[in-house]
Design a protein around this nucleic acid. Sequence first.
RNA 1: GGGUGAUUAGCUCAGCUGGUUAGAGCGCUACGUUCACAUCGUAGAGGUCACUGGUUCGAAUCCAGUAUCACCCA
Length: 884
Amino acid sequence: MEISKTYEPQLLEKKWYEFWEKSGYFKPAGDPSQKPFTILIPPPNVTGILHMGHVLNNTLQDVVVRYHRMKGEPTLWLPGVDHAGIATQNVVEKELAKEGTNRHELGRTKLLERIWKWKNEKGGIIIDQLKLLGASCDWDRQRFTMDEMLSRAVKEVFVSLYEDGLIYKGKYIINWCPRCVTALANDEVEHADENGKLWHIRYPYASGEGFVTVATTRPETMLGDVAVAVNPKDERYKELIGKELILPLTGRKIPVVADEYVDKEFGTGCVKVTPAHDPNDFEIGQRHSLPQLLVMDEHGIMNEAAGQDFAGMERYACREKVLELLAAQGLLEKTENHDHAVGHCYRCDTVIEPYLSDQWFVKMKPLATQAIKVVESGEVKFQPERWTKVYMHWMNNIRDWCISRQIWWGHRIPAYYCDQCGYMAVAKEMPDECPVCGAKSFTQDEDVLDTWFSSWLWPFSTMGWPEETDDLKRYLPTNVLITAPEIIYLWVARMIMSTLHFKGVIPFDTVLLHGTVRDEIGRKMSKSLGNSPDPIDIINRVGADALRFSMIFGTPKGADVMYSDNILETGRNFANKMWNAYRFIMMSIDGISGLPKPHELKLELADKWIISRLQEVTKEVHSHYENLRLNDAANAIFKFMWDEFCSWYIELSKDRLRDESDLQGQLTAKYILLDTMQKGMRLLHPIMPFITEEIWQSIKTVFPMEEEALITAKLPEADNSLLDSAIDDDMRFVQESITAIRNLRKQINLAPATEIEVIIRFADSQQSELFTGYMAYFRKLAKVNRIEGGIGIDKPNAAIAAVVRNIEIFLPLSGLIDLEAERNRLSKQSEKLEKELAGIKAKLNNANFIANAKEEVVAKEKEKFEEVNTKLELLQQLIKDLQV
RNA sequence: GGGUGAUUAGCUCAGCUGGUUAGAGCGCUACGUUCACAUCGUAGAGGUCACUGGUUCGAAUCCAGUAUCACCCA
């Protein structure tokens, strides 16, 4: 059989992915009575291109999904894509700009056509990229948030909530992007610290001499001031409360009000109040029933209300003019440098404007109550647990959700206004006739819904709700949601609320929040920083398996991933190691004629040991997968396959494979090699699906197995009857001794090929039987051609020595030994042991320890004392002998 | 300003319910091209577990405080 010397993933990955998909393995198998396992994908944006964050998120999901599939559960990973309102419209608008036109020229209908066209031709690239990563989603069930099915759910929900009084229209101060001409959600605003200025402006008293000074970072908004506020506890301004001031440049009279919100320490302790242009002022305004004076339009241009001097000016130009005029009138007291956070539009980076406008809202408090309960009761669990607190904090302080967006791409709000009388109807379809005036023409609300308004329905809209579909009955509630903590509020919490409200059940029982992928110096990977490598390049270079393994290996649950190209080596090297182990096995068993039946095996120490170890590791790996500790699962498999199976078992099998005098032993070794390898591939498959399928399928050609593909093959179960601690201990003893001998060889720089003889002083006959019985192991791994040993034998004259447990191993030297070096080496070891022994002694001499510590801990400590003491005595004797 | 997390080997991090000789990967040193693998092997060096207190027979692990860093929310 021809197998390449290094693992080449490129062709294999393509081959197996096509095989899996074509064979329908991604679909939930098993009969409908079986309890399914379901994961909902966090739908990537339709404009999305795979980045490292997606790689982490989807790898985790795929590992969990594959694990459950291999446990034999009917497993569904439901995929889909989000229409991503603003992001998608922006992409197409950019195209339009290149063509020298814009959406207003094109009109709503044409723009939507363009976006659909773009979506159908270029959208969803990420889906193909996820396939390259190995994602085993049921692609036949792929959803899009603007699909007919999901749009129906959106309308249904909107109308229903409106009828329940949970959706209302109202004035609100919102984040507004004057360039996109749209409202932005809080999370769509990116805050950045900027070096700004703090201007101190004098507002004269309406009556008499004098003035108060207010400090502001945004002087142009003073034109919309309706009051000045001070803290009621501020002694300086007690007298002022209730008095009137003259607002400079406008001559308007405004009152001084008292409000707790005002920070006495900040600025002058006097705050100008502009309810229409600042969220905090908006609230002060509400508390004091102040008017809301809008002085800007939707593009950030000052309007009539700003006064004729300023109307028509752009906001920053207006700022300059306001400052200029104030200075001219001697009302600008001083200017300070002041760094503060400024909000920017997450799409176009324009400075956002708090702005008063008509918007649609969802009342969240009534929805939150249940959603808090299910987390308190543990029906829905967050992992790592600390996120529960974050969730609770938000839910307990929840605010109404502004769901309208002033863009065109999205679900249009199902509200219709009578063209004659203005009557508003909220309905799934446009009404035929106005119930008030009888007119027959209506105009639909121009706004569309926040993208999250469709994603918060994801758990059931994707399964055909409001119809009572089979999928809904079978797969809801789903099991694990795997996503990033940034969207706990935006998405996770809202799904919990909507699913409870509309379906009366939780959407999922576990939420796994993973970390962020960062670069070498800890920066978040982002497009704008340009520090994110293209995952597809990586896959082309080292393969998806290596990428997946590397991401998982060093990343504990919920932790950030510090990515740099060199972490890929772990995965690449491991894949190569597995490849070569497989290559060795296939070359060795070449020409195998009939495998032995399990009961015909002639098992020796190494066989029993690797079998026992496999049971132990299988147990661990199950537990790690089950607890979503995927890094631990990866570590456990890695260690077992590399350090135990490859480094010891395979090495020890080599002589046996060539030993024609013991055919039964030879067959046994072949059998155990094949069996352990195929089982290892099963355990590893969820993390490295491609290479494991390739190896497993190839092993299957000589080692018959029932299943037709590894992806749906059963994970091994640990068999406790095969666990053997005595065997384990014997093998470890041999391993420790071999390591000690190798160490001795190194001391005197023996060439690796030089054969040696060792003399061993055993403590009992069992030991000597073990060592002579497995003499072959020492020959193979330490180049020992003869062990001369016995209990209580004399120490050879010229030799260097090592102590392993309670035996002494001597390596005789033909020439003179370097007494000094040997003494130093042994003394160093002995010092270490002395320290350890002192620690144990202190414990055992401590009456409190004996009295309080658990019995088994004390017993263990005593046992340890004996061991260390024996070893130390032997070492000290050796050192003493060297003095002569 | 409020909250959360982190601080363990040169680097990136494990160490889950206190008792380990404190581990891994990479890097480093020495030797090695023995017929699976140099994307390898063998042996080795390297840590006052941020600091200060406390709880305890016993603390890297639990508690409090301090410092530094990071992230989230305002």
